[in-house]
Design a protein around this nucleic acid. Structure first.
Lengths: 356, 356
DNA sequence: GAAAGTAATGCAATCGATTGCAGAGGTTTC
DNA sequence: GAAACCTCTGCAATCGATTGCATTACTTTC
């Protein structure tokens, strides 16, 4: 009694409109090659049957999947989830689906990626995780014709791919200069996980700004935040235990900074009175912690959009240049309440007043 | 000179191992049907050629995509990104890919979903967005054989699908009781966006706990937080402007609560001294704001894992029951620093002491 | 008015894996 | 020793859309 409706195929449409499947296919993909009247009959039949092309059949024939793979280190990180949002939007607008592969590092990541391509599930890869083993993937094709791949955020030096990233080094420099401009001379740094390219770049920017200003970088004022709130908190604990503390800190990301802040509070260290703090990323939360966090805003929406667009351009062979392009987006300093002049300034001002 | 390596097919493996493609196929999918020696030769050839089955061909023949579609209202929301993380893990473990469709509501959502199924791109749908139009999707098949679909978080009453969710109403009740247990009698509520099922359930739990305790719910102490930090902040502004304020607030989610907190701080209203605050979700950030947020922890990891598992069971026809199952996970109260006894208690205690 | 050109359409091969059916060769059963 | 029954394997159809080539029926050109 139950009428099992088969999902309509191109055959059904062809039968309904009294033409061959070839004509139906052409009517849908290159309408100008089909006469007006036939086209009308076909689109009527499409309406009637509710036909949608079978993607598997199309993929098999055309060897494209109309799907991209996004490999992320940790999707729970709000930094990445915002990017994924804009990737998804751009991809959907261009008719591509988005497959996510999370925590995409570790031993067999190369093989897993390779399988995605070999099994024809995806046309391209958007890689946000620099720790992935690319060697395996590179085996896929000869060197001169690598798989469509765009590397985002992380830098993979000398690889023949487009990259999209923000200028971490310069941004870190700017963040540090902001503190220096406020009068701070003793400044520490909460770094990311070691081995990470971002960590290295941001630390380099910090050192550069310090060096340019003729300030010393004290190794005991460098903490590892590893990009997590808990690790930032731990850094805060160690900070509180210092005999001599810097008057300002630059954190390599907002999450570390927020964890750091919460530890400060536990120890009765006030921000920005006792210590100024600059974060990195401008997560939504940054404006809402106490005090609101001064931070370097990363253009997350643009990053995802541009990376996805570039990848699809490569897939469709529309990439403007044959050579790998390296796109660098710039960050913006957002000054909020977590930075102020150093207490030393005030006391030295006081000192210079009192003796008079 | 460039050797274009074609991606290896089952034909190549067959040729290498001197058997037919049928045997190779069987060796890979049901090894027990192939003799030991042949199997060895085949797996050697697989190694040698680096063969991976073409998923499009397989999908076409078997009418399965080994992919699920996850429809989310907003992936940037950390609540959802944590769930997506566990979905992805569970799906990957069972050999399924995860396609994400973000902001999956609005006019044509039904048609978009229908197309995903009709085009054979996905085998099932994990729906986190109650505002999606299911009618269109239901047209796909007869009523008795609906598409594999699991509805998570949101409740769609009387629909013939498995659902996985947390007991929002009871959890909200518990959260409110926690405040009542501390001695609060004037309690307000920051609600979610109106029209949302979660909003309604959490508000209902709030009202239930208040009613059970014989407490009045004052309509001017109900704010709309709409689940965003900015809206929570706005609610905080309105709270600060009240002539008479409640001594405690229950917020329908952590983000609203955090926005609310930041507004309180701007107005010099101290939490928990002047007002206690309970959130909902236990985002990572909740432990790191100031004061650390008391909140109802949602079992996010379990939610994603169970929902994905249930969906794949349905897809593979292993679903234990033919009837829709309604799984309800329970939440846990995490008491942190944002809740305390009401100031009224202290002053009344003081009052009762002083006159003596 | 013949040759050439063009527009619209159909035929049938093709993509790569799966699977129903059948056959070959061997073993068990009575 | 014939019938029945395995086990292992191959043949060829099949899934649904795309596309190179061929065909038909006009139109244009000189």
């Amino acid at each position: 009694m139950v009428l099992v409706k088969k999902t309509p195929t191109i055959q059904d449409v062809a039968r309904f409109s009294g033409v061959s499947t070839a004509t139906v296919s052409r009517a849908l993909s290159s309408p100008e090659r089909v006469s007006e009247s036939t086209r009308a009959r076909i689109s009527e039949a499409v309406q009637l049957t509710g036909y949608t092309p079978n993607q598997s059949a199309r993929s098999l024939r055309q060897k494209t999947a109309r799907t991209i793979l996004v490999a992320l280190p940790d999707i729970r990180n709000p930094f990445f989830s915002a990017i994924l949002d804009s990737i998804e939007r751009e991809a959907a607008a261009r008719g591509y689906g988005v497959l996510v592969a999370n925590r995409f590092s570790g031993g067999d990541s190369g093989r897993r990626m390779r399988d995605y391509f070999l099994s024809n599930r995806v046309d391209g890869l958007l890689l946000f995780d620099g720790s992935v083993d690319l060697e395996q993937l590179m085996l896929l094709t000869g060197d001169p014709a690598p798989v469509p791949l765009v590397v985002a955020c992380e830098e993979i030096p000398s690889a023949p791919f487009h990259t999209v990233r923000t200028d971490n080094c310069y941004a870190a420099e700017q963040a540090t200069r902001h503190l220096i401009g406020l009068g701070h001379t003793s400044i520490g740094h909460i770094a990311g996980p070691c081995g990470n390219v971002l960590t290295a770049e941001r630390a380099a920017g910090f050192r550069k700004a310090m060096g340019d200003a003729g300030l010393m970088v004290r190794e005991d004022w460098l903490f590892e935040g590893a990009f997590g709130m808990d690790q930032g908190h731990a850094a805060g604990q160690r900070f509180a235990a210092l005999r001599e503390r810097p008057t300002a800190m630059f954190s390599a990301n907002d999450e570390s900074a927020i964890g750091f802040l919460s530890a400060l509070n536990q120890h009765g260290i006030a921000c920005p009175r006792d210590v100024s703090l600059v974060g990195f990323d401008d997560l939504d939360i940054a404006a809402h912690v106490l005090p609101p966090l001064t931070t370097m805003r990363q253009p997350r929406e643009a990053l995802g959009r541009i990376a996805a667009g570039a990848l699809i351009d490569v897939i469709e062979g529309q990439s403007r240049s044959r050579l790998p392009m390296h796109m660098v987006l710039s960050s913006e300093l957002i000054v909020r309440g977590s930075t102020a002049c150093p207490p030393a300034h005030q006391s030295s001002a006081a000192a210079s007043v009192l003796p008079v």
